[in-house]
Every structure is written in structure tokens, then in C-alpha cells.
Simulated scan of single mutants.
Amino acid sequence: MLRAITMVLMLLLSKVCKLDSLKADLQQGVTLNNVQMKFAPETSAEVGSRITLTCSVNIVAASSLTSQISYLFYKGPGSDVLLNSTVSSEQRSQVTIESARASHTGYYSCVVKVGNKAAKSEVSHLDVAGKLQTPRITIHPLKVIMGSQIELRCEAVEEVPPLEFIFYKYKKGQPSPVGDKTVTSRNSVTHTLKVTEATDQAYSCKIKGRSLETSSNCSEIVGITVQDPFSRHAFTIEPKNGIHEGDKLTITCTVRMSSLITSQMKPQLMILKGVTLMKRNYSLEIKYSKVASSKDTGNYSCIAMWNQTSKSIQKQVIVADSTQGTVASIKTLVTALLLGACTIHPD
């Protein structure tokens, strides 16, 4: 019984293989001739007008496989963007642009596929007279901490890619490009910037069609607010009224972070004497204490670092020699005694 079932399955598999082989042979008999792309109205139109793209082909076939004809409509000289794809039994297919935009200007072509055969039309140029849409720029976030990032997004939802996007920054009202021009097969693009102390605070963008000589108007200018991550930075040295050998020297470095910072990451604080690190910690405050000696005289720095942003305060510490203080006291006492001895009192 098992042997009989196996024989039946092998017979069915053989028939399926023969059908696939026959189908392939029939497809080899398909010839695609004279694939053409045409526009209505022909070659030129106005913004807002209705345009019909027609792809036609002359098919010679020895089978009924022509009931499955695939049409692919492309925009761009190198078939950059697939506009539409349809399947039909007719030897022509159409795509309608209901309201043409200036960015519809460009080169178009179509590809016809039947089975494993394909043929492409020549590239045809369409010109749509009119202005490009003024794009819209958005920035996130608008309030940003120095050392963080912002994302610029430029979009022109009514225009058809491929499009060229250009971002601009403004300094004293004068625009200059941000980064390189970006060409994309979408109608929006984003650009990320690291915010530093030198980062400009006003931006806009504009677009250009790949096949157009003119550009759109610039978008509105959008500004950002850049805040220092440290809302307060203090550096104190005690005693404040002169330091002598034997005194307790206390150096305190303190910061307070901006209210915009939601991260729990603490800043790194450092106390340095010259270039020598005296103390370091991830905290909002650090202290360095010791018994003062004349060797502690020098320049000290309080450095705060957060997310690659740093701020520094410097102060000079002078520790007086204790013997100098004793000598000065003796000189003062002697001077006072001599002045008292030389004073003549009247009778």
C-alpha cells in the first residue's frame, strides 16, 4: 500500500514539473516591442493641472500569459523613484497625477514585465511650470542644554521626490549652509547637530527638485534657546581673611545643574593645583581640606564637566610663613614702644 502511494506522489510531482517546464517554454515565446511613455498634456503643464502618464507596449505571445502584464512607472533619469506599479491584461496602463507640482518636472520611464521577460521605454521629460512649495522646518527640542543634540527636520509634503534639501544657519541675520546638501527619495529629511557654545541659534531650510534650476523660498526661521548645564558654579577658599601656616585650608567646588536636565547623571568635579589633580568626584560638591603650609601657595582651579561641556574657575592661594607673621608682630610692638618713649608730656 505504501509503495502504491509513493508511486502516485511521484507521478503527480512529475506532472507538476512538466507544467512548470511548459510554462517556461511559453514565456520564452513572449516578445515585448515598442515600449513607450507618453504624457497628456504633452511634455509641459502648469502647477495644479491634471496629467496622465501612459505606458504602452506591443506584445507578441504564443500563450495566454499576457493576462498578467506588470507595469512599473519610474521618475528620474536613472529610475530613481518608483511612482506606481500595476498589473493588467491590456497592452497599456495609465497613472494620473491629479494636481501637478513643480517637483513633478523631470524624467520619466516605464518598465513592462511578462513572466521573466522585461522591456523598458526611453526616458521622456515632463515640464511643470510653477513654484515649489515653501518647506516647513521643525526643531526638537527648542530649549536645549549645551552638550546635547538637536534634530532639524525639513519637509515639503506636497512635492514629489527625489528632492534636494538644504539647511541654513543664521548669524547676525546672514544665512550660511549647514552641512552638505541632502538628496533623498522622500519628501522630508532630518539633520542632527551637537550643541556647543559656538552653535548658532536660528535655522531655516529650502528645497530644490533634481530636474529644476530654481529653488523654493526658504522656510520660516526657527530659533532655539541654548542653556548652560550649570546654573551656578562656585569656588570658595577658607579662611577668607588671610591664610597662615598651621591654619585649616578648605577649598570647596560647587555646582547647581540647569532645571532642563532630567538625567540623573552627576557632573564630574575636579580641584587642581596648577595641573596637579588634588581631588575628583561625580557630585554636586567636593571639598579638599588640609593643614596649610607655605608649599600650598599657588593657583587652584575648580572644574565642572558634564556631557563633554566644561566650566572652570581659578583662584590664587597665598599661605603666609608663620615666622613672617611673628617678625611682623615684634616690629609692630617695638615701633609702638619707641613712639611711646619719645612722646613729651607738658608739665
Rank of each mutant, 00 (worst) to 15 (best):
S289W: 04
S85F: 06
K206V: 04
T254K: 04
A61F: 06
T262K: 15
H140F: 09
L337N: 00
S176A: 11
H140A: 15
P135H: 04
T31A: 13
D347P: 02
V114S: 08
P135D: 05
M270P: 05
I261W: 11
T184V: 14
T335A: 14
M270V: 13
N187T: 04
E238F: 02
V16A: 13
S49L: 08
H233Y: 00
Q201Y: 02
L11W: 07
T138A: 11
Q91V: 03
P162F: 02
L142R: 14
G78A: 05
F165Y: 13
T52G: 07
K171H: 10
S204P: 03
K171G: 12
P161F: 11
T225M: 06
R3S: 15
I150F: 08
Q314I: 13
L126V: 03
K290A: 12
A40L: 13
E159W: 11
A202T: 08
S188M: 08
K143C: 04
S148W: 08
T252P: 05
D247Y: 04
L212F: 05
P162Y: 06
I344S: 00
R101K: 14
S88W: 12
Y107M: 12
N187E: 05
S216L: 00
I59F: 10
I251F: 04
R136W: 07
E90I: 02
T192I: 10
K171N: 12
Q264I: 10
S49Y: 08
N58M: 09
L338W: 01
D247K: 02
E238Q: 03
S283I: 08
S216A: 03
N34E: 12
K331F: 05
A102D: 10
V60P: 02
L132S: 06
E122H: 07
L142I: 11
K279R: 14
E159Y: 13
L12G: 13
V60N: 13
G179N: 03
I313W: 00
K181E: 09
S70L: 10
C302H: 06
L142V: 12
S216G: 00
I313F: 03
S88I: 12
S121K: 01
P135L: 03
I318G: 00
K131F: 10
L142W: 03
K117T: 07
S93M: 00
S231V: 09
A4L: 11
S329H: 11
C302I: 00
D80F: 06
D80E: 15
A320L: 13
I150E: 08
L338T: 07
V35N: 07
A118R: 09
I69Q: 04
L284I: 09
S322V: 14
S322P: 10
I344H: 02
I59V: 15
R136T: 15
I207C: 01
G340S: 12
A62I: 11
Y300A: 01
A202V: 07
V47I: 08
V57R: 00
Q308H: 11
D25W: 03
L260D: 02
G246F: 01
A292F: 07
L126D: 00
G173H: 08
Y288S: 14
P41S: 01
E155M: 11
S211R: 02
L9S: 04
K248D: 12
L132G: 05
